[in-house]
């Protein structure tokens, strides 16, 4: 308790120093709570609170409670997609499919129009007395164009919906996060910018879900 307290107050004095941040964040792995006034002054420096879980089931239960708590700016970070987590978080079906559809439809149209224009309008070529244009001979190429643009649409849609590439993320400066989220831990992160966020209640919520390791992530 005292160590954590000291570190926090030290940081308060030192202001934002990047090198010190990580240490203080680690020290803030407080298993005990903080005193209120101290937290209030540091709140602007804190990006989020995170609760680390060892099993997907625990993280899922935690997600259910956070969802039911009405939070909006929060997430669960897992090394692999956990089945049922979308429902536990209350997420809607992904919209990526629309991007694929638009890509595919434009691919097919572009393919057909391209072939029609090249072989039947701009420079007519007679081959074996066959028609200048027929959707049948134009189909294989248009089909490939459909798939090509649809795949690009899917990937661009996914990147756009996820706001990737993301060049800066405070979470990735946190050692516990980096060692866990892409390895073998299941981490619930609630951002301080969430309207429902409150120092004590949010922490209590995570503690109630059986979280043994709660940590604050510096901004």
């Amino acid at each position: 308790m005292s160590a954590a307290k000291k570190k926090t107050s030290k940081k308060k004095n030192a202001g934002k120093s990047d090198a010190g941040n990580r240490d203080s964040a680690e020290a803030a792995v407080a298993s005990e709570g903080f005193e209120n006034e101290e937290m209030v002054c540091c709140e602007s420096d804190i990006h989020a609170v995170m609760g680390v879980y060892d099993t997907p089931a625990d993280a899922m239960h935690a997600a259910e409670s956070v969802r039911d708590g009405g939070y909006r700016r929060w997430d669960v970070h897992t090394p692999f997609p956990v089945h049922g987590m979308d429902a536990a978080m209350g997420l809607k079906n992904s919209k990526v499919g629309w991007f694929s559809f638009v890509g595919g439809a434009s691919g097919y149209t572009i393919g057909m129009l391209m072939i029609f224009w090249m072989n039947a309008v701009d420079y007519n070529i007679v081959v074996g007395g066959k028609p200048m244009f027929s959707p049948f001979y134009a189909f294989p190429v248009s089909y490939e164009c459909t798939i090509l643009l649809s795949a690009f649409g899917t990937l661009i849609g996914m990147a756009f919906l996820n706001r990737l590439p993301k060049l800066h993320n405070p979470l990735l400066k946190n050692r516990t996060f980096c060692q866990g989220a892409t390895h073998d831990k299941f981490i619930v992160v609630i951002e301080t910018s969430d309207p429902r966020y409150s120092q004590d209640e949010t922490r209590e919520l995570l503690e109630k879900t059986g979280c043994k390791h709660i940590e604050y992530v510096e901004d």
Partner: peptide, 18 residues
């Protein structure tokens, strides 16, 4: 900048399936 966020996984899994 991938962080294993479940909001990302949700779109990712859909994209992967498509």
């Amino acid at each position: 900048g991938w962080t294993g966020s479940n909001r990302h996984w949700s779109n990712y899994e859909k994209a992967y399936m498509i």
